[in-house]
């Protein structure tokens, strides 16, 4: 399964490093990463393969959510298909 991890909020030092640290500790491979500024917001999007993940999906969601709260950012972790089905015909 592939998941989209999106980060929205104010830019700061070390966001990508902190998220990557969590992902690598769970053996989650980052396939692609992009960042941009949209509507005055910093937006970073990661595509990750969680098929070898050492933790189950709800735990990953909650761990990244907590990190988001800690950093004052919104981190969403959602199945890739949500976006594919909505934006691709």
């Amino acid at each position: 399964m592939r998941t989209i991890i999106s980060v929205i909020g104010k830019d700061a030092v070390g966001i990508i490093a902190k998220i990557s640290a969590i992902l690598s500790s769970h053996k989650i491979n980052v396939l692609d990463i992009t960042q941009s500024v949209l509507d005055d917001m910093f937006v970073m999007v990661m595509l990750a393969d969680i098929s070898q993940s050492l933790v189950d999906f709800p735990s990953l969601v909650s761990e990244l959510d907590s990190l988001g709260n800690e950093l004052g950012l919104k981190i969403h972790t959602m199945h890739e298909d949500v976006f594919n089905s909505m934006h691709r015909i």
Binding site: I4, S6, I8, D32, T34, Q35, S36, L38, D39, V43, V45, L47, K74, H76, E80, V82, F83, N84, M86, H87
Partner: peptide
Amino acid sequence: MLNSFDILETI
């Protein structure tokens, strides 16, 4: 990969 605008719109 999907573009950030689309992802942001869904969220």
